[in-house]
Structure formats: structure tokens, C-alpha cells
């Protein structure tokens, strides 16, 4: 494994097991998230305002881990959502991939314990995600009631995502500690 840090440090042997999130771990995780979002969440939270679980995971992983992985997660997760959706195919894949790429650029090793960064990121990402999808749908000929959609779906969903993001962020940080190479003196 390539040592991305100072060569004076020695990588702990156990870190080689999960030194990166392999597809064999990521794909089942994203499938589970897609199933929960389309099957379970509508049962507990009926109506159009529901947490965007896949979006929160993609954005959160981008802020926590970065390194281009969030864009990948977004593309794969979006493809899975597209299979369940009646919207034009590719809508979720491209929008989640784009948002994941933006989240990757915000990844930082500094202030990672500062919760404001992922909260602000998910709020902005939620707005971009939903408004972007609506813009694409309008370009494809669908009629969009922007005022109604913005105030009744986009804003409440963005707020809901922001409220729930601390929990998702905490889980992802724990996951990141497992997959990042651990260092020993």
C-alpha cells in the first residue's frame, strides 16, 4: 500500500485490511441505503418531505474522507435510486455524483470535529440537489411550480437533512477511522 504520509511513520498491519473502502463493502452499503430510502422511510415518514439518506451519506463521506470517493459513491448510489425511480434515468446519478464531487473538494483534515462544516455543506447540497433536479426536469418539458416546490419541499427537506446530519456524520467519522490507515510511531 502506498504510504501517503511521512515515511517516518509505520502503518499498522491491521490497516491493510480496510485501507480503502473496497467495492465489496461500498456496494452493499449503498444498496442498503437505497432500499431504506425507498422502502422504509416512506412507511415512517409519508409525504414528500423525507430525509435524503443517500445524499447525506454521499456528502458526509465527501467531507469526512474526500479523495474523490464521494463522487464515486454519488454515481453508484444515484444509479441505484434511478432504478427505483420513474424520473428520467440518470437524474439521481448525475445530481448525486455532482454533489459528491463538490463535497470531495470540501474535504479537509482541519476542523474535522467542527460540526458546522458538514451541516452547512448538507444544507447547501440539499438545495443544489433538489433545485438542480427540478431545473433538469423543466428542461425536459415538465412543468415545475417553483414557488410551491421550493417552499413546501426543498426548504423543509434541506432543514430536515441538516437536523439529521450530525448523526450521519458521526457514523461516517467512525467508519472513516476504520478505513483510514492507522499509524504507529
Amino acid at each position: 500500500m502506498k504510504d501517503e504520509t511521512n515515511s517516518a511513520f509505520i502503518l499498522h498491519p491491521s490497516s491493510f485490511i480496510l485501507s480503502s473502502m473496497s467495492p465489496y463493502l461500498v456496494l452493499p452499503l449503498l444498496i442498503l441505503i437505497a432500499l431504506v430510502q425507498t422502502t422504509l422511510l416512506p412507511i415512517f415518514i409519508p409525504g414528500p418531505v423525507r430525509p435524503d439518506l443517500m445524499l447525506m451519506v454521499v456528502v458526509g463521506w465527501g467531507v469526512v474522507h474526500g479523495n474523490g470517493q464521494a463522487a464515486l459513491w454519488g454515481l453508484v448510489g444515484g444509479l441505484l435510486l434511478d432504478l427505483f425511480s420513474g424520473a428520467p434515468f440518470g437524474l439521481h446519478a448525475l445530481s448525486l455524483g455532482g454533489v459528491g464531487w463538490l463535497a470531495d473538494t470540501l474535504q479537509t483534515n482541519f476542523f474535522r470535529s467542527n460540526l458546522l462544516i458538514p451541516l452547512a455543506t448538507i444544507f447547501v447540497a440539499s438545495l443544489l440537489y433538489h433545485i438542480g433536479q427540478a431545473a433538469v426536469m423543466q428542461a425536459l418539458g415538465f412543468t415545475i411550480n417553483w414557488a410551491f416546490y421550493s417552499f413546501n419541499v426543498v426548504m423543509p427537506t434541506a432543514i430536515l437533512n441538516t437536523v439529521l446530519m450530525p448523526l450521519v456524520y458521526w457514523i461516517l467519522r467512525r467508519l472513516d477511522r476504520v478505513v483510514r490507515p492507522r499509524l504507529t510511531w
Binding site: 430510502q37 433536479q133 427540478a134
Partner: peptide
Amino acid sequence: VLAQDPSALVNYII
């Protein structure tokens, strides 16, 4: 009903 559409822009079920 197995699933609902993940997007609020369209209304489908599986």
C-alpha cells in the same frame, strides 16, 4: 407496494 419514488418531482410506486 414495495417502494415509493425517491424523488418528490414524480409520483410512482413499485
